[in-house]
Design a protein around this nucleic acid. Structure first.
Lengths: 133, 133
DNA sequence: CTATCTGCAAACGTTTTGCAGATGT
DNA sequence: ACATCTGCAAAACGTTTGCAGATAG
């Protein structure tokens, strides 16, 4: 990502929090965490700040199957496996595939910030339940 | 996918509709379309039917950034480009990358049904707006 | 007769929006 | 002054769930 346009204090706080986290977090989690750290901010500000950071290409979002969005710095893992039944979603180490595909995407005049590769299927416990039922 | 477990009439109707479509559709669209075709069914039945088909590995779901899920038969395109600002999401031709990564995913004991590779960034119009603003 | 499936409407949870007040240039 | 940012609460949205009735084996 290029240099960030000026961040408000709250936006910087959110950004810094994300830097310290190793895994994806939801807006609600960020909100709860920052409130616990004596910050006085509203949930809407978290959402607006995350959107702003996302437009800068600094933060990536991923939608979980429960409809919740989780956020992390761009450059974290980009490969996930998700169970279509229980919704569990685990990030894996990143596998180098973007360099091959980016040019094709770029031909659409998109400015690409990040990508995600996600596998969907049944996790072990859910698979057992299915075969039994 | 393996053989489908018995489908109810409504589930078969939904499945057949998906077969005739070339692009992803939301549950609400399926509902509207089937109602227009004189079918008497509820929206909940559409959701339940889609879930059932998804558990069979017959149908794939993808969450759009507006929180809406779109469904299609497994085996359609699996490569998408999405704008983080306006949310427009365009499917591209499929790029062969799964064979390389599937083994890694399988080591997690997941039964994989399908995958999606999605690039996120700014589309042309949104990029202009950003640079102006 | 029992288990499954269905429609409807209410409930749910996350995210977005309206608005008035605060902030900063 | 003026544009932006903020908190709060209300609204919005797609989706899920409860339940009684219908259906099937």
């Amino acid at each position: 990502m290029s240099a960030l346009s000026p961040l408000t204090p709250h936006q910087a706080t959110i950004f810094n929090l994300l830097k310290t986290l190793e895994s994806e977090v939801s807006a609600q989690m960020i909100y709860a965490e920052l409130r616990q750290q004596k910050h006085r901010l509203g949930l809407a500000t978290v959402y607006r700040g995350l959107k702003h950071l996302q437009l800068q290409g600094a933060v990536q979002a991923r939608l979980l199957s429960n409809g919740e969005a989780v956020y992390s710095l761009v450059s974290e893992e980009k490969l996930y496996v998700t169970c279509v039944k229980c919704g569990i979603s685990v990030p894996l180490a990143y596998c180098p595939i973007d360099e091959q595909v980016l040019p094709q995407a770029l031909s659409l005049r998109f400015k690409i910030f990040y990508h995600t590769l996600e596998f969907f299927g049944l996790c072990s416990p859910c698979l057992e339940q299915e075969t039994v039922a």
